[in-house]
Design a protein around this nucleic acid. Structure first.
Lengths: 117, 117
DNA sequence: ATGCTGTCTCGACGTCTGTCGAATCAGACA
DNA sequence: TGTCTGATTCGACAGACGTCGAGACAGCAT
């Protein structure tokens, strides 16, 4: 169901540690971009914090003053950025977060105390 | 010199912990958006990892196959997202990272192990 | 099969974004 | 003062983005 971005960057010294190589930047930037919209950031949070690790589109849509197609579009963006997985079960579609990439992004942003080694 | 975004969100339970409120999403999304371009992600990294905590535009520009105005535009975007500070010293302009907001972003993305409390 | 409900795709629209060249501003220095 | 260099702003352009309504598809229940 999902054309996923190939984000498996070897892994993640922090931004502040050394200069991020162009390939890493190219691989990770789309994920940040996907989070760069308030609606998607909230969607991501609702998905990632959902009870049982997943949440139905039918619970996401009514939380916004936006049409179904628009929410669907944002969910697709999150999917294509590799941030979430979708899974149809009967009538409903459930979304779950992909923790690995979230950890990569968090690691990249980690600020090492200036008074470190 | 810099019209800075007012990003001082009280602070940061992780995305995965509870649903991010709309105001927090609205405040932080621009920072993610700013990082959502490969060039800006590299610029941010070069700035944040610079020796002495700052770096001259004259050291940033030649690292890319882009014109000066384009780099300047990306730096302005980072500035307006509150991610960096600029500081002119004589002929040259130096950029430095703002660690507080980086920490907020990292905290937001922190994945709490599912087997937690 | 028919219909109903939830979700997605398609096509369109106005806006925003990344890039450039040309022009401008800020300091240093002769 | 005038001129040179570094950095920014301005104006323009093609392409991407967020949103919507209309339509299509998937699965359940008559």
């Amino acid at each position: 169901m999902s054309k996923q971005a190939a984000v498996d960057v070897s892994c993640c010294p922090a931004l502040t540690e050394r200069r991020v190589p162009a390939e890493t930047a190219a691989a990770l930037a789309p994920a940040f971009k996907a989070l760069g919209d308030p609606v998607r950031l909230q969607l991501m949070s609702m998905i990632a914090s959902a009870e049982g690790g997943e949440i139905c589109v039918c619970d996401l849509t009514p939380a916004f003053d936006l049409t179904g197609p628009t929410i669907s579009h944002h969910l697709r963006t999150l999917r294509e950025a590799g941030l979430v997985d979708a899974d149809r079960r009967g009538t409903w579609v459930y979304y779950r977060a992909r923790p690995t990439i979230l950890r990569q992004l968090a690691a990249l942003l980690t600020v090492t105390p200036p008074s470190a080694t």
